[in-house]
Structure formats: structure tokens, C-alpha cells
Design a protein around this nucleic acid. Structure first.
Lengths: 187, 187
DNA sequence: CGCCAGGTTGAAGCGCTTCAACGTCTGTGG
DNA sequence: CCACAGACGTTGAAGCGCTTCAACCTGGCG
């Protein structure tokens, strides 16, 4: 739990009372490698904080597997679109490695929004971070080539290239594994 | 101002006291067709609510003009990434038509966050809407062809096809005007 | 040891870009 | 009022980068 407390403290002023209310509602969970956290078609009811491990978000379409994103320790992750709209999720969440997570139910998170002094600010700041991430990703898809997107990973997320199988990276940057292999061959 | 009040009321419970605090801080502005609201390189200091008119967000790269988005009446718009990070904006905002807007300074908006009961919830909900929009757009770029993206505009945003010059729609869906022209020729 | 998943490489095809020419409409000045 | 310029869209042709299908290689694991 301390990891979560430290993380929250980086973003907001967290009183002891608020932390008690928060920590009471988060529950430790573990997932094994390749286990599914949330399936497409399910409505997301929980929010996860990653203590250890890597989580992958992906679509399955026509037997094709398209990676949307990866999530690493010290971040929140879930099928956020489904979580907000309470409509079925379009994509899956799976544990790429064994994972230790802390999770909270939607009702409990919304109770925190309303009944702690930092709640709404927390929700806002969390959503702002997601927005900034997606803005950057939109920018990358609109003005960069797949090669440039791959090279960016070296600069900005080298751990990603080390830890993630190439086939997942390929669809993450919007191309096939074969195309990525050829891009790598040309350095 | 009433348009803004109605809009806010659709999303949160707005007390009279809160509305007084909010309406005091918004200021009417007009922009003529082709006028620029925010330039790339500038740091965004205001948030705009559109009462009348259409606003376009676009990059300028190597003398190329790439449209990111359009904003219509009853919506907030600004260079939100720059607004949040207070770093220079990568893109421009321009009035595609004559526009009537209501605008608020960043300091004033953050004062509303802290000093009205609905403030933080408002910021959170507003950001959630932006997140949902960008998620959909990410989805569109990852799993749809340009043709499918264009056809989606008919179903989901027909006003866009009517009101917006084709060259802007082309870059909005990620292709050249020539390619869009050929897609249209094939129905 | 042998299997299988992941990565590489080859060849053909397609959809987009790029450059270029042309048609049409609108607005402006002679 | 007409003539012309400029913006926008369309169409043609060539080129390129990606996809697709396929074969092959390699390392890890049962």
C-alpha cells in the first residue's frame, strides 16, 4: 500500500484521514502471466494500481491482436472508457507478467470522490494524465511514420523495447510484425 | 451566458452561488473568420466555450496543414495539452467561421476548481469527455481504414461533411485531399 | 529430441503519396 | 459587366511503404 500512498502524494496533498479512507477501499490482487483482468464485452467495474508487473491492453479483431497500450508499475490502469460509460469494453486487459495489483471498485472510487477532500481533484488529475498520454499518441499517429514512432520508443520508453515481445510493439505502433522486422533491419 | 449555464447544468448540479462565481469570470469574445485564437508556440492561458461558430485545431509542418479536430457550439475548446502543462502549444486554433465565444483565464478556472463546490467535479467531467473523444479517435486510427473513417463521418457527424472544406476533412482522417477525392469517387 | 512460438526474409499486390495538369467557382478590379 | 486570379476539387501517372502469404530459422520448453 505504501507504493500507492507515495504515488498519490506526488500529485495531491493527502491528509491522514483521506489516506485511511482510501487505503480501506483498495484490495490487493495478484494475476499470473497471461491471465486476463478484463475481457472485451465486460463492463469495467474496477480500477487497478500496478505494484509489480506489466499489463497489456489489446483488441481482438478477425483473429488479429492489436495492442493499444502497456501499463507498468506505479500507474493506474483499467478499461477506462468502459469504466466511465459503463458500456461493454472493446478491448482486453491481460497480465504480460505475474502482477501484484491494488484494485478498487467503481462505487468505492466514486465514494472517495465525494467523501474525501482530495477526491475530485484526484479524479481530475488522473484523467488529465490519461488525456495527455492520448494527445501525444494522437500526435504520433498523425504526424509521424511508423519508423519514427519506433525510434521514439528508444528515446522515450527504452524499457518497452527490452521487455515487450516485438509482435506487440508492432501493432502498438500501427504496423505488422513483418514490417517492424524490416524497419529494424534498416536500423 | 445562458447557453453556458444550460450546458453546465447538463453535467453537474449547479447552485446559484456557483453560477454567480462562474459567470463573473467568463468574458464574451468574438473572432472573425480565419482569425487565430491561439498560435503554435504560445502557451495556452484561456479556456473557450463556443456559443456560435466553428473552431479548427491544426498543426503546420513543412508547409503542410494537418487538422487535429473541429469544435462546434456548446463545447469547450482550447490547446488543452498546453493549458495543462503550460508548455508551448504544438498547434493552432483558428476560427473557421465568425465566432462568439465565452472565455476564462486559467487562473480563474483553477480558482473555480478550488472555491466552488462543483469545481473539481466540473474539471474532472470535462476532462473525461475529452478522454472519451480521444479514445475513440485512437480506436479509429488503429482499427479502421481511411475509407471507413470517412464513412463514419456520415453516420456520426454529418454536419462536419456539410460545413467543413474537404481538404480539412482529409487531414483530419489522416490522408491527402487527393486520396479523399478518390475515396469519394468510389462512393 | 522435437515441437512450437516468435522473428526474419522473399515476392506480389494494393493503397496511399507525390507531382502535375486541368476544371470550376468565387470574388475582385479594370 | 466582364476578365482574370486564386482557391478548391478532380483526375492521371509513377513511386513507395505497407500488407499479405509463404517459407525458413532460431531458441525455449515439454
Amino acid at each position: 500500500m505504501d507504493v500507492l500512498r507515495d504515488f498519490l502524494n506526488q500529485h495531491i496533498a493527502l491528509s491522514n484521514a483521506d489516506w485511511v479512507a482510501i487505503s480501506e477501499r483498495f484490495k490487493p490482487e495478484t494475476f499470473n502471466k497471461n491471465e486476463t483482468l478484463t475481457k472485451a464485452g465486460q463492463t469495467e467495474g474496477r480500477m487497478y494500481f500496478i505494484v509489480r508487473g506489466v499489463v497489456r491492453l489489446y483488441y481482438e479483431l478477425d483473429h488479429k491482436d492489436i495492442t493499444l497500450n502497456f501499463a507498468f508499475p506505479n500507474a493506474f490502469v483499467n478499461a477506462y472508457t468502459s469504466f466511465l460509460t459503463q458500456e461493454p469494453s472493446d478491448f482486453f486487459l491481460e497480465a504480460l507478467t505475474n502482477c501484484e495489483l491494488l484494485s478498487i471498485a467503481k462505487e468505492d472510487l466514486y465514494a472517495l470522490y465525494d467523501h474525501t477532500s482530495c477526491g475530485h481533484a484526484l479524479g481530475r488529475i488522473f484523467t488529465e494524465k490519461l488525456f495527455l498520454y492520448l494527445s501525444k499518441r494522437e500526435n504520433d499517429f498523425m504526424i509521424k511514420t511508423p519508423t519514427q514512432r519506433y525510434l521514439d520508443l528508444f528515446d522515450q520508453q527504452p524499457h518497452l523495447i527490452k521487455e515487450i515481445p516485438q509482435k506487440y510493439l508492432a501493432s502498438y505502433i500501427g504496423i505488422t510484425p513483418q514490417a517492424l522486422s524490416r524497419i529494424r533491419a534498416k536500423i
